[in-house]
């Protein structure tokens, strides 16, 4: 097992560096691991991803040294006013694609002084921009910091890049349409009360269209739904919800089942849906989402 470098840093850095806006100044990258030139350039390009100005510091190879050596060097470099003074990146391990890189802040939001945060290499440039314009705070990045290499080795941190998707059971997302000018926000809350606390990919229901203004709103829904499925691939192709009454709490919503092959690439996608292949049934709004989930999971039959 390779020796872990000493990553300790002073708690504070000279404050004279911290005045003014530094947006646009290139971010410096350093190496504590022993990279070959090609490997180092590969990492720099990966971080920059053709979007950000990320450069090697004039001296960037600190292989075998402590992080403190980089810190001391960067303070001198920052005096030149070319590089971003308070944010820089350090590759601690050659296995950066798995273990991430270290973002160092010399003035994290004015409260915590000097600090480090391990994050994915592809996220680090974006994080620096967000910190620079104060769109996000240091603590917010620390909230989702990658586990340290030591904790992973000891089995404390799990697999760093374990896909969240692997943990999630398959789920369905149902499109919501209205043909009666119903309040879509209210419908959304009624259908899925906790939706605003979910990641978008976890939504059970998703706004798909307000057809109220069309001469034939229901006809538009039938025509439009397969087309929406082409654009928003997460939507359930056959099952969706239509609020055909303005007061959904009192009158419920329509559960809709369109029998078609679900082929969103067909040329006649706007002509697939019609009254012949689409069934509806009325349902209390509070039960609509769970009912459709059970139907989609084949735990319940469609009842006309």
């Amino acid at each position: 097992m390779s020796m872990q470098p000493d990553l300790t840093l002073p708690s504070k850095a000279p404050t004279e560096l911290f005045h003014g806006d530094a947006l646009g100044k290139p971010f410096a990258v350093y190496m504590l691991a022993d990279f070959q030139d090609g490997e180092a350039e590969e990492l720099r390009k990966f971080i920059a991803s053709d979007e950000y100005d990320v450069r090697f510091a004039p001296r960037y190879n600190f292989a075998g040294q402590a992080l403190r050596a980089v810190f001391d060097y960067h303070l001198k470099l920052a005096e030149g006013g070319i590089y971003h003074p308070t944010l820089f990146v350090v590759a601690v391990q050659k296995t950066w694609s798995k273990d991430g890189v270290l973002l160092v802040s010399l003035n994290c939001d004015g409260e915590c002084g000097v600090d480090t945060c391990r994050m994915r290499a592809e996220d680090v440039a974006s994080a620096m921009v967000n910190l620079e314009i104060a769109n996000m705070d240091w603590e917010e990045f620390k909230d989702s910091e990658l586990p340290s290499v030591e904790s992973v080795t000891a089995g404390l941190g799990g697999t760093i890049f374990e896909s969240a998707d692997n943990k999630k059971p398959p789920h369905h997302t149902f499109g919501i349409y209205t043909t009666a000018g119903a309040n879509m926000t209210n419908i959304r809350v009624q259908l899925e009360p906790d939706w605003d606390r979910k990641q978008p990919e976890d939504y059970i229901c998703e706004f798909a269209g307000n057809m109220t203004a069309y001469p034939d709103p229901w006809g538009e829904v039938l025509s439009y739904h397969p087309f929406v499925c082409r654009r928003v691939k997460a939507l359930h192709r056959q099952l969706f919800i239509c609020a055909d009454k303005k007061d959904v709490e009192k009158e419920g919503v329509l559960l809709c089942k369109m029998d078609w092959d679900g082929n969103i690439d067909r040329e006649d996608v706007l002509e697939v849906g019609n009254n012949e292949n689409t069934k509806t049934r009325r349902c209390p709004v509070g039960e609509a989402a769970s009912t459709l989930v059970e139907i989609a999971d084949h735990k319940r039959e469609w009842e006309d």
């Binding site: 947006l23 996220d123 974006s126 994080a127 921009v129 967000n130 620079e132 314009i133 769109n135 996000m136």
Partner: peptide, 8 residues
């Protein structure tokens, strides 16, 4: 984060 990138 994406919004921050756009603004920056």
């Amino acid at each position: 984060s994406r919004q921050g990138n756009l603004i920056g």
